[in-house]
Nucleic acid binder design. Structure first.
Lengths: 235, 235
DNA sequence: CTTTGTATAATTGTATACAATTATACAGTG
DNA sequence: CACTGTATAATTGTATACAATTATACAAAG
């Protein structure tokens, strides 16, 4: 089932670089977002268009468009005629997001169990296989990617645009914290088992069980986060 | 308490036009968003930059920036090199949003009860007074505005950026449905009473009660929405 | 009649120019 | 020394120019 051999390079979507960079604006957006999420730009920093323009070797137009998008996401704040300052995601924000997810993500699993397609189940199976592979290989960065993908597919399977939109955003925002969690082999192993159980419930179309298992999954993730909170606070 | 007299024009924030149009991009964004929310642009329509540019008498730059923002909100979808098409908010989306709000908005009220400031309580009092005024005057469009403001203040009082962000967005998206609800005098009256009760709980810093009352408030709103669902589907 | 190729038009993507606004430095004044 | 006014620079806001891509119309071929 799981890919074998050391040199094997699994491919689901070109190297996991999902969302090939379509336009410059898109690439710039992801770049700056990442730099905010991983602390290159700290809260309070001001982002100057011409400077970013020089650094990233593009004109101001795509920079501005990216900044407007980041503003909508709440990652930066734009003050008219003055500039944009970084807001970022605080540790408190992450804690809040876990609390919200505990109340909502089970609903996504419930709806997914009712509406998931065969194709989506196949996608999930493949992702879980890859998670197994990278768990044994102890590779947190790939794990993070496929953990993201697992939840993305789940959200998509719920067939609810608002739910999907909101949960994707939240999940994406807390990736720094998730990265740290998945770096602990025990937690990584636990995540894998929980995903397997959720997948099983989805395959059986057992909405009740899928909801319950997912709620527990998020609860465990939340507990794990609280354990590592100080560690994250240092960044 | 409540403003008296027929000609009285209450002012909390210049005519309720909250968020004076800062930049062109901002104005254009709100304009197009509104036109999508109220059905001028229907799902599937394609938005052409030059056309919008002519219609709104601005250059393409602010149009593009606004469209990129709308894309982030999920209200439009942009296909690289082809253009943007309207997605909009479907009746199913609205129903989902009510379901999500039923699970989350109580949390906002709970946190608000714990963290609300005196200033915010004063703001809420004033808003409730105005709601009372416009309820007796039977003025749905003003009611919608102050209903929005009531919830916005509540979200803000929770002191949670993610919660606030998400609930504001949702609340904003379903305004067409809320507008119809508030046009029914009985529902308008009920909303007023529920807001008063929530405000009272907040003033008493009774988190438990605030949460419970808010959950009931959303539940009632949801029930009311489902009653008017067909009516909204026609638009 | 359908299909395919190609020129033309329409549209989006990116860069740049200019205007408006805000920040900074510094001299003069009390 | 603090404060204020003003010139200059830095930065953002908007419009436009040009390039790249995609859609459309229409003729030629099968």
């Amino acid at each position: 089932m799981a890919p074998k051999g050391v040199g094997y390079m699994p491919r689901l979507d070109l190297d996991g670089n999902s969302g090939y960079f379509n336009s410059l604006t898109d690439r710039i957006f992801k770049q700056i977002e990442n730099d905010i999420l991983y602390g290159k730009y700290q809260p309070g920093d001001s982002l100057i268009e011409t400077k970013l323009s020089r650094e990233l070797n593009v004109s101001r137009t795509p920079i501005r468009e990216a900044l407007r998008q980041l503003e909508r996401e709440g990652l930066v704040q734009s003050i008219p005629n003055k500039g944009v300052i970084v807001k970022g995601i605080s540790v408190q924000d992450i804690e809040d997001i876990y609390t919200i997810r505990m109340m909502i993500e089970g609903l996504a699993a419930r709806w997914a169990a009712e509406k998931i397609t065969e194709k989506e189940i196949e996608e999930l199976k493949e992702v879980v296989d890859l998670e197994e592979f990278y768990t044994t290989k102890n590779d947190p960065s790939h794990l993070l990617k496929f953990d993201s993908r697992f939840h993305e597919i789940l959200f998509r399977a719920s067939k609810s645009k608002p739910l999907m939109h909101m949960l994707s955003m939240f999940h994406h925002y807390i990736q720094r914290a998730r990265n740290i969690s998945l770096s602990t082999p025990e937690r990584a192993q636990k995540v894998l088992e929980e995903h397997k159980a959720i997948l099983k419930a989805l395959m059986e179309r057992d909405a009740e069980k899928a909801e319950k298992l997912t709620n527990e999954h998020i609860k465990n993730a939340s507990i794990n986060f609280l354990k590592h909170k100080e560690e994250i606070e240092k960044l």
